[in-house]
Design a protein around this nucleic acid. Structure first.
Lengths: 135, 135
DNA sequence: CAGCATCCCGACAGATACTG
DNA sequence: CAGTATCTGTCGGGATGCTG
């Protein structure tokens, strides 16, 4: 099925290399510590900056801003400024953002399913490979 | 569906917080630039260290070693040393590793499908938000 | 061949202070 | 309230050199 293979396929002068890089770049998005957490918070309702800041425990103001900017840039969230005082800025998931979240959750299923197994593997490995002795 | 919710669920004294952290940690695994590339190379055959080094373009010896150690620790790949000279070390995907790859590929579908859309969004955003003027 | 040890640099996260 | 600006420390990761 070439149509399948070419879903989101390369453009005319585009190499597979380039496409691969882009995909990796997108994968990195979900590896990002904060992105998924922020998106997760926006799952079922729009939130204000401060609400997000409180909801995502541990994130700094700076990181929240940067993360939101990136998500906005990618078209995963919308940023709506209400012209009033005090300022009121609301963030919401776009449809694209929702589909991303769904996919990530699907992958999260894998992680949840194999979490224990992986942790066990780690413990076993660490037991078998003790931290260097210094005689 | 509580059974669903508890797939890979928490142990006795384990908080949801901790479980969440672990899942995030696993998600970070695939955000890692090299992990997926290495795993991808091992998709259909076992490879030697040098072969991997050549196959994964751009990776440094150091990063390849570290990546492989992490994957081995997590039980995603096996490391087999053949006692001969010159040394011969072979890496292969475990079953767990295979299921991970499958899941990642599934997510990769999402990325491939929306790649263009995201890139367009970025271009549009960058056009609308020119890099700061300094008067 | 496979891989560990060391040095080193740039990127990036956190804290803090200031502004529309 | 919702940011921006700046400084600073850390840390990932590349290059290099040495071993089993």
């Amino acid at each position: 099925m070439t149509a399948q293979k070419n879903a989101g396929g390369q453009g005319p002068g585009e190499t597979e290399e380039e496409a691969c890089r882009e995909v990796l770049q997108i994968l990195a998005l979900i590896g990002d510590k904060w992105s998924i957490l922020v998106i997760g918070q926006l799952r079922d309702r729009t939130l204000r900056f401060g609400e997000l800041h409180r909801a995502v425990t541990g994130i700094s103001q700076r990181m929240l801003t940067l993360t939101l900017r990136q998500l906005e840039r990618d078209g995963l969230v919308t940023r709506t400024v209400h012209a009033c005082v005090p300022p009121r800025v609301e963030y919401a998931l776009t449809e694209l953002g929702t589909t991303l979240l769904d996919s990530v959750v699907a992958f999260g299923q894998w992680a949840a399913t194999h979490r224990k197994e992986i942790c066990d593997n780690r413990r076993r490995y660490d037991a078998a490979h003790p931290p260097r002795k210094r005689p």
